[in-house]
């Protein structure tokens, strides 16, 4: 029998926090292994990510794409879908935004920038709707198709940016996007851009759709119990496609933000697992938009602090990749954490 677990608001926050603490504890084993003091390393990690406005700005800049990909995974999850394809949707969105950015030059900024953002978003939505359609119409589980589409997107954009849309330099990238399509930098010399506001707005929109609209009600109903939803007159197939498209739209925006706010051109394989990290962010944020924002900031902080830790101690910066993976392990194993925290399970 499936046990029903009574969850209070405190417990809702306690499990992710416990997971982070456990991950840091296990991570300190790796720090000891290389002969450094965990407290020193973690202090540097913290100070370098939150210690000054400049550090905080970098933390937010690193957190921005993770907010989007975290939202993508969380949104899908609420509708009962596991979107592990944020990485691919991100690439398609990024390329689409870059294409608008370097093609339609001469447009006024007021039109060019929003156009690039919308097209980038639609690119991700399109790529996300493919596995949604295949699940709705043919019943194929979305996990395998989204994994396959990640690689297809990777190679497709690789070809586009080195073939038909190659920028002409020796590097595998497209031409630069016009200044009229670039997001504004907020706190130079850090690379934080107005993209962070876009991410916060996206989180708010995700919340509104899920909890304040009829569409969102249907999506969540499908997520909780598709059979019951179908019985209650909800079109499960249609909602599956819509959920994957919206999820993909968020991932597409992650790519869009990276191009228009950071790289200003499409660079082959620029992402470095931002989409997969979205899984970690969504899990840690309990698949809630507010949780996603905080989780993304934590991951952004780890990334920001790791460079200084690498420089000032002999701990390789990859420690934080290990810690991020450990966080996923522990959040995913809620069953374990609940046992550690001795939370009551009700029959």
């Amino acid at each position: 029998m499936q046990k029903r677990i009574k969850v209070t608001r405190w417990q809702e926050i306690a499990t992710p926090l416990a997971a982070v603490v456990l991950a840091l504890l296990v991570g300190s084993g790796f720090i000891l292994f290389v002969g450094e003091n965990p407290l020193t390393a973690y202090r540097i990690l913290f100070v370098e990510s939150f210690g000054s406005i400049r550090n905080l700005a970098t933390t937010l800049q690193r957190a921005t794409p993770l907010m989007f990909t975290g939202l993508a995974v969380a949104f899908g999850y609420r509708a009962g879908l596991f979107n592990i394809g944020a990485e691919g949707q991100l690439y398609i969105g990024a390329f689409a935004a870059a294409w608008v950015g370097f093609t339609f030059t001469g447009l006024p900024r007021l039109i060019h920038l929003p156009l690039a953002i919308v097209v980038g978003m639609l690119g991700g939505a399109f790529w996300g709707s493919i596995p949604g359609y295949l699940k709705a119409k043919l019943g194929i589980h979305e996990v395998i198709n989204t994994i396959m589409l990640n690689f297809i997107a990777l190679y497709l954009t690789d070809w586009l940016a080195t073939g038909p849309f190659h920028g002409g330099s020796w590097v595998p990238e497209t031409a630069r996007v016009s200044a009229t399509a670039a997001l504004t930098r907020l706190y130079p010399p850090t690379r934080l851009s107005t993209g962070v506001f876009l991410a916060l707005a996206a989180a708010f929109v995700a919340y509104l759709i899920l909890w304040k609209t009829k569409q969102g009600y249907e999506l969540r109903a499908v997520g909780l119990n598709p059979q019951a939803a179908e019985y209650g007159g909800i079109n499960v197939a249609k909602n599956t496609i819509i959920a994957m498209a919206i999820s993909g739209a968020f991932a597409g925006l992650a790519g869009t933000e990276q191009i228009l706010g950071l790289h200003n051109r499409f660079i082959v394989r620029f992402s470095a697992d931002l989409g997969f990290m979205g899984v970690a962010v969504a899990l840690l944020g309990k698949n809630h938009p507010v949780g996603v924002i905080f989780a993304a900031i934590l991951f952004g902080a780890l990334q920001t602090g790791s460079a200084a830790m690498d420089r000032l101690t002999s701990v390789p910066r990859e420690l934080i990749t290990i810690i991020q993976a450990l966080i996923i392990f522990f959040v995913a194993a809620e069953y374990l954490i609940r046992r550690i925290l001795r939370m009551k399970e009700e029959a």
Binding site: I84, V279, A280, L319, T321, I322, Q324, A325, I328, F329
Partner: peptide, 12 residues
């Protein structure tokens, strides 16, 4: 999820 975590873990 655990598979994803192992892949990230291995890379790091």
């Amino acid at each position: 999820v655990i598979g994803t975590a192992i892949n990230i873990f291995a890379g790091g």
